[in-house]
Design a protein around this nucleic acid. Sequence first.
DNA 1: CTGAAAGCGCTTACAG
DNA 2: CTGAAAGCGCTTACAG
Lengths: 345, 345
Amino acid sequence: MKKKTASRKDIKRTPRPAEVTIDTVAEAAGVSTATVSRFFNAPQRLTQRTTLRVQTAVNDLGYVPNLLAGGLSSARTQLIAAVIPTITNSIFSSTIQEISDSLAERGYNVVLALTGPNDEHAERQLLSIIGRRPDGIILSGAVVPNNARAKLIASAIPTIETWDLPSDPIDMVVGFSHEAVGRAVGMHATKTGRRKVLVVSAAGVRAVARRHGFAKVLLEQGFPEPSVTSFAASTTYGNGRSAVAAHLDAGGRPELVVCSSDWAAHGALDELRHRGIRVPRDIAVIGFGDSDFASELNPSLTSVKIDGKAIGQQSAAFLMKRAQGQKIKERIVDVGFELIIRGSG
Amino acid sequence: MKKKTASRKDIKRTPRPAEVTIDTVAEAAGVSTATVSRFFNAPQRLTQRTTLRVQTAVNDLGYVPNLLAGGLSSARTQLIAAVIPTITNSIFSSTIQEISDSLAERGYNVVLALTGPNDEHAERQLLSIIGRRPDGIILSGAVVPNNARAKLIASAIPTIETWDLPSDPIDMVVGFSHEAVGRAVGMHATKTGRRKVLVVSAAGVRAVARRHGFAKVLLEQGFPEPSVTSFAASTTYGNGRSAVAAHLDAGGRPELVVCSSDWAAHGALDELRHRGIRVPRDIAVIGFGDSDFASELNPSLTSVKIDGKAIGQQSAAFLMKRAQGQKIKERIVDVGFELIIRGSG
DNA sequence: CTGAAAGCGCTTACAG
DNA sequence: CTGAAAGCGCTTACAG
């Protein structure tokens, strides 16, 4: 015996809510779906008359092409993945902003992978990102677990490591040497004769690389090894204040405070002023990042400028070249950095 | 006569680079593609023996499911779109971070739409985002052009407007009243008897709403209308300094400086100290956002705290409810705010 | 618990 | 310049 429901008209499957598809548009315009597709992807191939008819149908129906279907069909998703540790206070924002801005008019969007606190989280994010088959992946400051790294390579998705110069690159690189930054700051410190140094630093690999480059130069010049106060995440204003306060309270008498961010440097400056210590006469302060406020402080802040926007531009250019099937000979670009010496020492 | 190329073996189309697909895995595991699909989406429906076979094949082949195909087929993309003006110095970061974090383990990713400087740019970003058929759209601080707004509504994608309480919501809302924030600050100002006020404000609709709420209370209490220095984008440290400097240089003698961001307030504090003006004795300063450094400043900064993380949590909860097909009765949530009175007045 | 097969909404090589 | 039709890699209602 048939079920009651089986006797109802022709309902076989639970129907999806009707979507305006390319078929709807094609029918309304009296053309084939191929023509509607060309209207969006190769408009120069249509006659004016055809263009007009499709345009009208598209407008009337409010049609928005389904990019999932398009991407699946064409193997181009117009999606760029940005892999960063967190989005909050990210020093990489300018790079991502630039990538988004410069690729937006070609229809690209940026999808985020926030690798977060641990490897499992990072791994899961990376895998789902690979599953979305982006046309490019930008890695900035994120640690890629080994398994994810292998799948990344196997995926053959154009990948750009940025804000660093990895010794064993996955694919393309647009960055600078953190070690070299540390050495440059170290040269400056030794040149100005500041022997006793407090370093306020994040614990990430890149901040540590800067710290090592810095210490290396000091030791080479016969200076004592710097004191270090380390913080798990990127250093904040409060970190700078408290690190300086604790160091001084413990009897430290530094001649220079080097911070892994301008925020921490700002905090250091304020703590020193609060204690009536003169900058740079008694103690010099150096930051990192050359934030918008660095030049506005009193005294203005010596810092290391990284051109995050240029990193974004170069990365976008790399991806567009790959998208056009061009080979890239020089796949590693060192954008360098600039030590900007200002009033703080 | 046949073309030469036509006689070569069976080449009909330019083949794509071979991808490891669900078919590859199914064959290797000796099961159907349906079973492989279930391995990922409904593992509890498989026997242990089957699970093991599929698992092995997946590992051996390094298979990563194509989420475009999955999304197209299931009409669930596991993609959440975050629509914000810019990613640089975004006050909305905490909200997006929270959404990403809380939805990550369910396989969701966040795709960005940076609406940017003008309506055309915003429109294009929104349209391509709609084309990606996200399972939810979070709007924060972005202005949605009318045409895009219509398509958004037509798309039937669950949409949440955040960080505001729009009078004519698109769908769901998780935010607070900027007007009410302004009034609260105004009440505080009148209570403390500060009659002459300088407002340092961004020109965006929300900053302006706060400013209006603020001015309204002052006028109602018989206080004079505040002076206003307005900036196009969100206010920076430098903006705060220069606005205060210009105002004082022009002969202004305010008793209170209200800023549309903590950064500007920080700049205002520094400019006042630089001029030997005591805070809060001579002039009080109030910020907005309760940034991490607000409580660390000297004097500590009075500010308005918005719980951006809570906005993200509530938004994620809304989306998950919708994803499970639940109806939401109360679609507008006012998360409120908190005026935190500290040392600066 | 598992499989065969239809279908998701596009793109594109061919043919005309 | 335009169309018919195969194919992209999945999911899922049915059937067994």
